[in-house]
């Protein structure tokens, strides 16, 4: 049987999703044997831009004309395009000011008014431009979910990831509820599970790095937090750290 060809690429990002693959130390060698690595500049020289890929894992948000060209290239050249990580799925950390500060103002703050200002637009998720076949969420993504996806693709299918909030995993670990019992700004109720409630389990409120869960009761979360004395402005600021596209009136 032919090995499926694999592309791994990055747009506007920290390389953390690509690093997550290299962090699968126990499994990496088998992955490199079972796939034909056609495009992975971070790990292999002479990446093949002309190839067709069975699977493309692309991380990062789309924020430059170059990013957009790369995204179109991998959409056109790949059978399965995976939005790899929170930036690719929701815009992520670099998009948090999209609704509040115009892009030119942000650019000016860092690069001044000179000629060397790079061309850049508000960072956006893949779904604004192309159709994607699957997503792996998280900032960073969970190694287990990446391995599930790679295994499923080898078996000719795609994995089913959980569609319930972080709270469910948090409660099943019998962790103290930071929102109800400690009055902390925890986003667990509206955030996609799959991390086994890593942060609340160490006593740190959920910062929302995995993006919105399907059918999130956003309005109820807002009410719970307002009741606890957080301002609307602070809540929106925290919720927009990884995802700006919240519907604060959503109640399912």
């Amino acid at each position: 049987m032919n090995k499926p060809s694999l592309a791994i690429a990055g747009l506007t990002a920290c390389s953390g999703c690509q690093l997550t693959l290299l962090n699968c130390e126990g499994e990496l060698q088998e992955i490199l044997e079972r796939f034909q690595v056609a495009y992975f500049p971070m790990g292999q020289s002479d990446p093949d831009r002309q190839a067709r890929y069975d699977l493309a894992l692309v991380e990062g948000a789309v924020s430059t004309p170059g990013d957009l060209a790369t995204l179109f290239h991998f959409r056109n050249a790949s059978r399965l395009l995976v939005a790899f990580g929170t930036c690719a799925l929701f815009g992520g950390i670099a998009a948090q000011h999209n609704r509040t500060t115009p892009r030119p103002k942000l650019l000016e703050a860092v690069y001044g008014n000179g000629e060397s200002r790079p061309e850049s637009f508000p960072p956006a998720p893949f779904k604004n431009f192309v159709s994607v076949d699957a997503g792996i969420t998280g900032c960073p993504p969970e190694k287990g979910e990446l391995l599930q996806l790679l295994g499923a693709v080898l078996a000719g299918t795609l994995p089913a990831f959980p569609h319930y909030p972080v709270c469910l995993e948090c409660r099943s670990r019998e962790t103290l509820c930071l929102l109800l019992e400690r009055n902390q700004l925890c986003l667990g109720p509206v955030i996609q599970a799959g991390c086994n409630a890593r942060c609340p389990a160490t006593g740190i409120p959920c910062e929302g790095c995995r993006g919105p869960v399907a059918e999130a009761n956003v309005a109820q979360e807002l009410e719970l937090l307002l009741e606890r004395g957080f301002s609307r402005e602070e809540i929106e600021r925290r919720m927009s750290r990884f995802t700006v596209e919240w519907d604060y009136g959503q109640r399912r």
Partner: peptide, 18 residues
């Protein structure tokens, strides 16, 4: 040629804890 994420600008107005 990394696409800039403008972190220093993103931090303005955020609380010390964030």
């Amino acid at each position: 040629t990394e696409s800039p994420r403008l972190f220093e600008a993103l931090l303005r107005g955020r609380s010390y804890a964030e």
